[in-house]
Amino acid sequence: MSSNIKVVTRHGNSLKDKLYLPAIYDGVKVTFKHLFDNVTDMNAIDTLEYPEEQPTDITSRYRGLHRLTHRADDTIACVACFMCATACPSNCIFIEAVDREDGVDEKMPKSFFIDTLECVFCGYCVEACPCDAIRMDTGIFSLTGNSREDFVMGKEQLLSHKGAFGEEVSCART
């Protein structure tokens, strides 16, 4: 027999193991301790009373609801290059481009819709954007509405979302 072979001892053949009742006793001791501790002090249970208590551990890398960033002069940073719409695996970004009249840039989106019911929150649009115009750093994790239309975000709504982690304006288009 090679010295590399490690013999693993099998458990469960002793009388104590076969009786099974001592094991149940040990198990009940553990569960009962948890039950007793939690019954005597329910508020110490480490859970979130969700709607009243909001999570505080959302990090800057969390992919929340999208937003469209601004430039320093408070105009839209997006140049309607369609990179995000192309990268989107669920095809939920709908852009219509228009010439930009104010001379800041050549193009801008006339309309910019994200269907959040289709969106899988993968963050590819953020990765694809050359202008840092779309971000998912709003920290918004809960989205509710009364109809399907409520979940289709338009340009104005996306622009109105604020970044939750300090960076307000686009880093690529100033």
Binding site: V39, T40, D41, N43, E49, E52, E53
Partner: peptide, 17 residues
């Protein structure tokens, strides 16, 4: 006593419902 201690919410919760 148990009820007064446990039928409450943590101080961080806005309302005790």
């Amino acid at each position: 006593r148990w009820m007064r201690k446990n039928n409450t919410v943590r101080p961080t919760v806005s309302t005790d419902g």
